[in-house]
Structure formats: C-alpha cells, structure tokens
Amino acid sequence: MTVSDTTVNRPVKTVPMLSVRGLQKIYKVPGGEVEAVRDLTFDLAEGELVCLVGPSGSGKTTLLKCISGLMEQTSGTVELAGSKVTGPPKSMAVVFQEYGRSLFPWMTVRGNVELPLKNQKVPKAERTALVDAALKSVGLDHVPKSYPWQLSGGMQQRVAIARAVAYRPQVLLMDEPFAAVDAQTRADLEDLIRTIWKQLGVTILFVTHDIDESVYLGERVIVLSSSPTVVQEDLKIDLPAERDQLNTRALPRFMELRSHVYAEIQRAKLGPVTEQITAQRKAARK
C-alpha cells in the first residue's frame, strides 16, 4: 500500500465541527501587501484530533487567528458547528505559541485557570471542582498557589493547557504549544494532549512544525505549503489509537508516514503548489 492511497477524501455527511472554506488573509503592510494565506479549505469532524504542519512562516499562526475569530480574514469563511465565526466564539479555546506571555503574571496558577470560568459566572463549587480536575490532569495539582513566572516553561504551558481544559471548549486550537520546551517535557506533553483528547472528546486542531510530533499526535495531518499558503496534502494517520512514545515511534508505519510528510514538506518549501497541481488533484479525486 502506498501512502498516497490514504489521502483523505471523505464525503461530509453531517455538519462538520469546524469548517474552513477558501480562507485567504492578506496583511496590509507599509509599502504593500503580504499574502500570508492564499486559499485554505478543510473540515474537522466532531471529536477529531488534526495536526497542521507547515514550514516556518507558512501562515499557521495567521490561520489559527482567523479560525479563532481574533483576526478578520480577507476572504473565505470559517464555520463552527454550522455558524459563521465573526468574533471569538464562546465554545473555543486557544493555547498560544508564546506561553510566557499568555498567562497573567499577577495571578496564581489557580487564579489563571479559574479566571475564564469566573468570567462565565460558573458557580463557585463547580468552578473549584473544574479547576482542581484540570490541574490534576496536567499534573500540576501541587503548585496552585505559585505564580506562573516561578514555573519552568513546560509547566507554564501546562497551566495554559489546564486553563483551556477547565473551560470545556468544543474546539481546542493549539499553536505550536511545545516549540520551546525540552524533548522529555515535550514527549510528556504530547501524551498529555492525547489523554485529554480521549477523556474530553474535544475537537483539537494542533499546529506544529515538527513532523514526528504531527504524525505521533494526529488522527489526520494537514500539510501546508509555504507562503502564500494552500493545503498541500490532507493525510489520514492510520496508527493504533493507543500510542506510546517508544513503541508507536518504532512502528514501520510510523516511519513511512513521517517520511511521507517529510517529503511533502520538502516539496512545500520549494514553493507553493501551483493552482495547476491543485486542479489536477481535484480532478484526480473525482
């Protein structure tokens, strides 16, 4: 079986949880325009865990900001469970790339995790239970009174994840959350994400530039071309649902998939897939 056979071509029957259609973003900069994202179309079904890989500068952060309603796209639409996203939706949480700047330094770990719930007027008892559970699930139940800046980078990112988990979103967006933590912590955090995903049944879009990470984590991997960005490939990851750092990464199938994604990224770096190739693909799918 060749890898390209597994390229996803699923017919969408029900309303997808997240639907991105023809998304384009052009930044206006002094003396011209930068087209960060050209034309992105993909869907996430409810409860899916999808990884998005692309070279640095390919517009991953731009895409997430448009999806999360933090930034307005130039054209195209984003729909969350069938309704158009025009501002930050209530049922979505984002974990940012810069963990050091996404937690409030004047609040304790507990305060940070609790704030979105407090803001939603969740009753005190329920709030406490949710925060406790979230901190426990990321293994930080021993430092609730510490301040974020007293923690290591990996721990800070875990606090940010706990905050998102306690919020109980339907869709969780993560922007290269582990880019700046050491390898061991990173492996732990990857397993943490899969555990949380299974426990909560939340739909996750996980952005990374690490190929191994994307294959290890995802049920599907979307490969982006370099800027101006289009979807280069949408690949199903047919690895067993139970994954662990040692065995899964040693599977021949894992190797195959990662080499395939690697080759795609190399291709992506050479330049954006031209409309011609995209068109050819569309024709081939029919």
């Binding site: 933090l70 209530k90 996404s102 004047w106």
Partner: peptide, 25 residues
Amino acid sequence: DSVLNDSCRSYGIRGFARIRYFVLP
C-alpha cells in the same frame, strides 16, 4: 501585551472584567 490581550478575547473576557482582571493589573 498583545498575547495576553488575545487570551482575554478568546476567553470572552470583556468590558469591566477585562479592566479589572487584565488592564488594571
């Protein structure tokens, strides 16, 4: 900070709560 600001927005922390928990501190 723009990232903190985005965090507030994505969690729907607006208006008076935004001032109290984010801007003022």
